[in-house]
């Protein structure tokens, strides 16, 4: 077990988790409540539609730019595996395996 302790509840961490949970709840329940009463505009729907891909690439790009060869190889392996197998499990494991292999080497 790590040094942080099994049952420790850090106040700042609790506030962060509660705040994040409040956000997911607001979006899920609020969206149902609001859009059951008014139809979301096409622009709003399109805008929301661009969020997932934009978010993922924003997350990945700096990580890869700041890391070394092992991450780059792992990224190519994960992307190729997902493209070919469409299996989340296979892609994650192959990407991790490739990265780990280069790192060990």
């Amino acid at each position: 077990m790590n040094a942080s302790g099994f049952f420790r509840l850090d106040p700042d961490t609790l506030i962060a988790i509660a705040g994040m949970t409040a956000m997911t709840l607001t979006c899920r329940v609020g969206g149902y409540w609001l859009f059951s009463r008014m139809k979301p505009s096409q622009t709003l729907r399109d805008g929301f539609g661009y969020v997932p891909a934009s978010m993922l690439i924003a997350l990945i790009a700096p990580t890869l730019a700041n890391a070394g060869l092992a991450y780059a190889v792992g990224a190519v392996a994960a992307a190729a595996a997902m493209f070919m197998t469409r299996s989340f499990v296979v892609a994650t494991l192959l990407g991790l395996g490739a990265c780990w292999a280069i790192w060990e080497y």
Partner: peptide
Amino acid sequence: PIFFAATASFIATLVNMA
């Protein structure tokens, strides 16, 4: 390198839903 698992899962998700 275990931390790369998170990035790998993001990449897999991106390939799947872009």
